[in-house]
């Protein structure tokens, strides 16, 4: 039982990270109908930038994290303004190629700047552990859960109650009408990219103590993509829940299933979900009328 609970908590934490990365996919997809295959690389880059601020510049962890988020948000916004915007209106295929290409460029650039070795990012939670019955909770995992919950609340409040958040939703639901209402749609799109890059940075920093930072950190994007699809690709709570589901499957299959299932279990679930319920578990109920 204790082992089960332990796995559950750890799976939840890993799943939250997948969920955050999936959230980045969904935000960009909803706003601009672009599937950003470089989302995993944004996570990797975010982690490296945070590493630079915290370890190389020796800043306080929180200051470094905040600076990394701002830097990455600016980077994400510029990426949209300078590169991605030019491809809007082109066939879907070209946006796929473009974002995959951006991912490759980012990975190589990171290898050039930070080198191929694996780095670790010390966090304030490293040593502490708590004990509840037989379950050992490390503060790292708890911090992941808390951050995800907090971020979810902040994003919910932002989209639900703030003027800019509502305008972003409007722009993603009907671009033409949003334009006619005086919403600067292009700036909103860049804003969504910035937001998504900032969320990716948080995911990268949270992932750092578990996975260490290297240029292959972007591989988390693949699992997160599966999470986003399971969640319905377009639903924000769906993305987080899909991520949690994948995280749990990951850990449990590693322990309870024969060797090797860990790597494929989540994709098997993905296929089953797609066959049984093609809109994903939390797909939008009402379809967008055009």
């Amino acid at each position: 039982m204790a082992e089960f609970l332990q796995l559950f908590v750890n799976g939840l934490a890993v799943g939250c990270i997948y969920g955050l990365v999936a959230l980045g996919f969904v935000l960009i997809y909803k706003a601009g109908e672009v599937v950003n295959f470089a989302q995993g690389e944004l996570v990797m880059l975010g982690a490296f930038v945070a590493f630079t601020f915290v370890v190389q510049f020796g800043l306080n962890y929180w200051v470094g994290l905040a600076l990394a988020m701002v830097t990455m948000a600016i980077f994400g916004g510029l990426l949209d303004m300078i590169v991605v915007r030019r491809i809007i209106g082109q066939p879907q295929f070209s946006t796929v190629m473009l974002t995959i290409g951006i991912g490759v460029v980012m990975r190589s650039a990171a290898a050039m700047v930070w080198g191929p070795e694996t780095r670790s990012l010390p966090t304030p939670f490293d040593a502490a552990t708590f004990r509840f019955g037989g379950v050992v909770l490390s503060a790292v995992y708890l911090s992941i859960l808390a951050t995800t919950a907090l971020l979810g609340l902040i994003l919910f409040g932002f989209f639900r109650f703030s003027r800019v958040g509502t305008a972003m939703q409007a722009a993603s639901q009907n671009q033409l009408a949003a334009y006619c209402m005086g919403i600067p749609v292009k700036r909103m799109l860049s804003g969504v990219w910035a937001l998504s890059a900032a969320v990716a940075t948080i995911a990268g920093v949270l992932l750092a103590p578990i996975n260490l930072i290297d240029t292959n950190l972007g591989a988390v994007g693949l699992k997160a993509f599966a999470a986003a699809v399971i969640g319905g690709f377009g639903s924000i709570p769906g993305a987080v829940l899909g991520g949690i589901l994948i995280g749990l499957i990951d850990l449990f299959s590693g322990v309870y299933l024969p060797q090797g299932f860990k790597d494929i279990a989540s994709y098997i679930v993905l296929l089953v979900v797609l066959v049984v319920c093609p809109q994903g578990l939390f797909g939008a109920v009402g379809r967008k009328k055009v």
């Binding site: 509502t166 305008a167 409007a170 639901q173 009907n174 033409l176 006619c180 005086g182 967008k288």
Partner: peptide
Amino acid sequence: ISLVPEGRELFPFLSVRDNLKVGAYT
């Protein structure tokens, strides 16, 4: 100058009140 586009072009998932609020964005 405000346009009421052909075929309404509302924001389907926003509430009526939010639709009106977005109209006042400027």
